[in-house]
């Protein structure tokens, strides 16, 4: 039982008054040894595995349990779930989720206004209204290609441009969005600001894309230090 309690952390701490009684939370991922595989929790993906016969490879591999926010619902999107996690403050996930939902609603409102105003049927058909697609496009547009790291050479630190992994650049892009949202003017709500920002970024414009371009410019300026990566 002690082992069970250790693996499945029983959340007895009351967080911000949301949890009234002790609740079973999912296992911490660090308890799994490295040979455990990531769970496939989407039904469609599982069906694909069965169809292609790839499932045979997975049959003898132990799997981690799915996290509590990973569902096979059609409305669930891993990208959106990740974004919510980056937005989150003090573990208030419900609040973060609601704010993002409001953002999505606002995006749809703004886009539908444009859609109803548009008279050209071709442009109308090409217009994107789906907020999740806009979010993905915005993040894809603001992913940097390089980053700067501090390297100590001869007693002083140099900002050295180094290549960035896909994972890290996604993180940079999403973090920039959240940062811009927190730095915004107080007169405008987070959801409203984020909605306009995401729409702008999906059209390669706006604060976050400028941040990306600034980083690229700095990398370009510091290209002379690039060899410090090796020597």
């Amino acid at each position: 039982m002690a082992l069970f309690a250790k693996y499945l952390r029983i959340g007895s701490t009351v967080k911000h008054g949301f949890q009234a009684f002790p609740q079973l939370t999912t296992a911490k991922y660090s308890v799994y040894p490295p040979h455990f595989a990531e769970p496939v929790y989407k039904k469609q993906e599982l069906d694909k595995l069965y169809e292609s016969g790839e499932i045979e490879n997975y049959k003898l591999i132990p799997f981690k349990a799915a996290k509590s926010n990973e569902t096979c619902s059609i409305f669930h999107d891993p990208m959106v779930a990740k974004f919510i996690n980056y937005m989150l403050l003090k573990g208030q996930k419900k609040l973060a989720r609601e704010v993002l939902e409001k953002t999505f609603e606002k995006i749809k409102k703004l886009q539908l206004e444009k859609y109803n105003r548009e008279t050209d049927p071709e442009k109308k058909a090409s217009m994107i209204i789906d907020p999740v697609v806009i979010l993905k496009k915005a993040v894809a547009n603001s992913k940097p290609l390089l980053k700067l790291t501090a390297v100590k050479r001869g007693g002083s630190f140099y900002q050295v441009p180094v290549p960035i992994t896909d994972k890290e650049s996604t993180f940079y892009a999403m973090r920039w969005f959240v940062q811009c949202g927190r730095e915004k003017d107080k007169s405008i709500s987070f959801a409203d600001f984020m909605a306009t920002e995401l729409i702008k970024a999906s059209n390669n414009d706006g604060k976050v894309v400028n941040k990306k371009l600034d980083l690229h410019k700095q990398c370009e300026a510091n290209r002379a230090y690039a060899h410090y990566r090796w020597s």
Partner: peptide, 18 residues
């Protein structure tokens, strides 16, 4: 790791919906 790569893939290969 694989799952994370899948996630990043979502971001890169955005928008191409049928």
């Amino acid at each position: 790791m694989r799952a994370y790569r899948r996630l990043c893939g979502y971001a890169t290969a955005a928008v191409k919906q049928e």
